[in-house]
Amino acid sequence: MSAVPAVAEPTGAVWLDFLKKWARIGGTKIFNFVAGLAILVALWWLGVWYITLDPALEHFRSFAPNRAIFEGIPAMWEFGGIQRGLGASGYRLGMGMLIAIAIGVPLGILVGRSELFGDMTHLPFQLLRMVSPLSWEPIAVIAFATWDRAIIFLIVMGAVWPVMFATAAGIAKIDPAWFKVARNLGAKRLHVLTQVILPAVTYDVLTGIRLAVGVAWIVLIPAEFFGTRAGIGYTIEDARENLFYDQMMGMIVLIGVIGYILDTILVQLLNRANWVRET
């Protein structure tokens, strides 16, 4: 981009302005964002092109980005696979996260505030945390009447730990003097909770929620491979079984895009809640 003006000079003012504008855009955030994704799509396309040079692998052409984005996704939209999938998966993810937060934040406050409770629950919680969430799947299927509830349970088993441990870590960072000040100013227990603890730990809780959404996102897709008849995991499995590879690739793209948007929203919330201002 830097050599552009020298080459473009003789071709006339219109070209020069155009190229100068591009040179200015080069290096900005938006440019890098688009260029990075363009490189990714180009590499993807090149990979498929290289594989399909072999005539025996001709059918792999439907894996290409153009096929996935312009044929796979519209086809899935038309029969409603995307809308239904997003509705079902969104409900499970939302309910799972809500329950994980409703359990994780109070538990985290307890772990952070009470040394006895924290020490006593450390080992059992670490053990439960390291039980890979999907290993609960057979038990969840027996214990819960519907697939929806079983999947929500799996999400909770994955997502509750990051929320809990982040909340506890946030509590540990609170200056003990704040509690004294609050008590001296006549704050009751409830006031201490709502006026001191909760505002102080919001940032850490959100950090935990961001991690938890990441985990829930990993757990959700395989949980929907089995049994259930709706959800983005089911849609991708369905496309594979019907050999609709363009739809399968389109679904992978969609999963990435939705995950990216979810994560970006949480990062924005995090930046807003950060009360440690760097100087």
Partner: peptide, 19 residues
């Protein structure tokens, strides 16, 4: 330049790659 593609790939749920 790697931020957007890496974040995108990172947020593809790993099991979605399974098929």
């Amino acid at each position: 330049i790697s931020h957007s593609p890496f974040q995108f790939i990172r947020m593809i749920s790993p099991l979605a790659w399974m098929p």
